[in-house]
Design a protein around this nucleic acid. Sequence first.
DNA 1: CAGTTAATTAACCATTTGGTTTATTATGCC
DNA 2: GGCATAATAAACCAAATGGTTAATTAACTG
Lengths: 122, 122
Amino acid sequence: MLEDKLTQTFAALADPTRRAMLARLSQGEANVSELAQPFIKTMSLPAITKHVKVLERAGLITKSRDAQWRPCKLRGAGLRDAADWVGQYRAFWEESFDRLDAYLKETAGKKSRKKKSDALLQ
Amino acid sequence: MLEDKLTQTFAALADPTRRAMLARLSQGEANVSELAQPFIKTMSLPAITKHVKVLERAGLITKSRDAQWRPCKLRGAGLRDAADWVGQYRAFWEESFDRLDAYLKETAGKKSRKKKSDALLQ
DNA sequence: CAGTTAATTAACCATTTGGTTTATTATGCC
DNA sequence: GGCATAATAAACCAAATGGTTAATTAACTG
């Protein structure tokens, strides 16, 4: 994945309105006004349109056409790219570890109580 | 985790310079000028300082003091929070699925070839 | 103490972001 | 055709972001 695409993806996720839209879409397709519904008291429709566009350009959703409606659907691959990037660092939140320890466990170890430390970075 | 903290975390990840800094820190502690090293031809030190501060405020790194140096280290919990959020959507990138199918597999199923679909959303 | 190194602060600037209001496009319906 | 609905576009604005340069703080070193 392009460096810049990942930037767009994380930027798109860095907004609670857009994350709520993804949450809504995880329950099924929705058109723009349906996505707008929870926010329409506090935000204009053009603002919603913009948020949807950010999600679309980031590859997190796809938008199609049905008469005057624009049904949107979640695009798993977009979220997977973000998950894959973050996943590189899994070893850093899986309890106690250090790289040597991890190396020993992965190669020769068998009795250590600590969890595995994945290879990190490209 | 606070809604707003997640926003800060994703915003911090939405920059290639900052992601590169995290990559560097995944190989071990580094102080600010060490983090700056790959960028110092193209960016001033105050710019680096600002990036480091964004990472720190997002909870992705911690910074301590050693004389005039400021050793930084990766904070796994910050990345885990991001990973956990994205992980809610795992079902959407793990091949063919739908919520009913997932439900059946998780509760009664035993022979389905499809991968598991986690419960989504709060 | 004087000088050097590490890092930050302050003030500033351009661009991007997230919102607004008003106007427009496109579709379906009577 | 005329009207209502769904969505977008355009123009604008304030605040945030990502950078700069110049000045400052803090610590070590000779």
